[in-house]
């Protein structure tokens, strides 16, 4: 299964881009200081708001900072917040959804009510308010706040899947052998949900990056550090669009879009594996088969 997954070209491209961003987030700051010999806040008084050139590959901001350095360092802020919030959201979704679906009864009623409550809250507005309240918080606090509003959808999905898997014959059969509940959940039910969980995780990742960018754009994200959101926010604050400084806000925007595309590609691949009818390869195969059948027909008739 994993083999087929990695052979899928969409998945390969998606995972490749995702891995590149991850690498950027891990090594970016070191790269900027060691190779580019600059920092995102270093001001070059000779180049204020200059378009891309050999010296500044992506140009400079109006105050004179290097955009490339900012984008590279900003990856850490954005990607780390995205991944941390996604891990948290996925774990919370599993902890709420799976027991709720598997055990049923009063616990299920309680947890479902709790999930629905979070599901109906106006999440972005609340994120805004809370993030504004803890202004100047560390990046992981922002991740925590984003995760707190990201999990309910996933919990619902996992709950319904667990309910369906709990009643399947193979789970019932193992239960009737005397298998413990923990083992039933981890050995019989959970392995069937890896596809859903990974898709959920990737989606949450992008949502986290978006949310962080949005918060930074509104000026209530992490303070002091650079992220793609803060770059766009500064560009907006200093009328980059009006002054035609496109190299200032396009790179971070493209990065966010590219990360979104990468996860979408991986998710397409997961879909194709869990639902073989969606597979493009299969469709091609079917076309070839039909063509072959058409050309073969006269021979059969003869």
């Amino acid at each position: 299964m994993l083999n087929g997954f990695l052979r899928n070209s969409k998945v390969r491209i998606g995972l490749g881009v995702f891995a590149a961003f991850l690498l950027l987030a891990l090594l970016g700051p070191w790269f900027v200081s060691a190779v580019m010999h600059t920092t995102p806040r270093t001001i070059d008084y000779d180049a204020l708001g200059q378009p891309p050139s050999a010296k500044h590959l992506l140009g400079t901001t109006l105050p004179g900072s290097d955009v490339l350095a900012q984008v590279i360092v900003g990856a850490r802020g954005s990607v780390f917040v995205g991944i941390t919030s996604a891990v948290l959201a996925t774990v919370i979704a599993a902890l709420v959804g799976v027991p709720s679906g598997f055990l049923g009864g009063r616990l299920d009623h309680g947890l479902t009510a709790f999930t629905n409550l979070f599901l109906t809250l106006p999440s972005f507005a609340l994120t805004l308010i809370i993030a504004g309240y803890v202004q100047g918080a560390a990046w992981w606090v922002i991740a925590l706040i984003i995760a707190a509003f990201e999990w309910p959808g996933g919990a619902r999905t996992l709950r319904s899947q667990t309910m369906s898997l709990r009643g399947r014959d193979f789970t019932v059969a193992m239960r009737m052998l005397g298998e413990s509940k923990t083992r039933l959940v981890f050995a019989e039910v959970m392995p069937h949900m890896t596809g859903i969980v990974s898709a959920m995780f990737l989606r949450a990742c992008v949502a986290g990056v978006f949310a962080e960018a949005a918060l930074s754009f509104l000026g209530i994200g992490t303070t002091g550090s650079v992220s793609w959101g803060t770059i766009i926010s500064e560009a907006q604050g200093q009328s980059a669009i009006l002054n035609g400084l496109w190299w200032w806000f396009v790179p971070p925007g493209l990065c966010i879009a590219l990360l979104g595309t990468a996860t979408a590609l991986v998710n397409f691949g997961i879909d194709e594996i869990s639902n073989p009818r969606l597979s493009a390869a299969n469709r091609k195969l079917m076309k070839r088969f039909r063509r072959a059948a058409r050309t073969a027909e006269p021979e059969v008739a003869r």
């Binding site: 193979f170 789970t171 059969a173 193992m174 009737m176 005397g178 298998e179 050995a187 019989e188 069937h192």
Partner: peptide, 30 residues
Amino acid sequence: RSYFRQVQLIFQDPFASLNPLHKVRYTLGR
């Protein structure tokens, strides 16, 4: 649990009653 040790059910559908993700070794071993 002690009842399950004495009485076992064989299901109607052999395609549904084995977990597709486990090898025979695991299913029987468990």
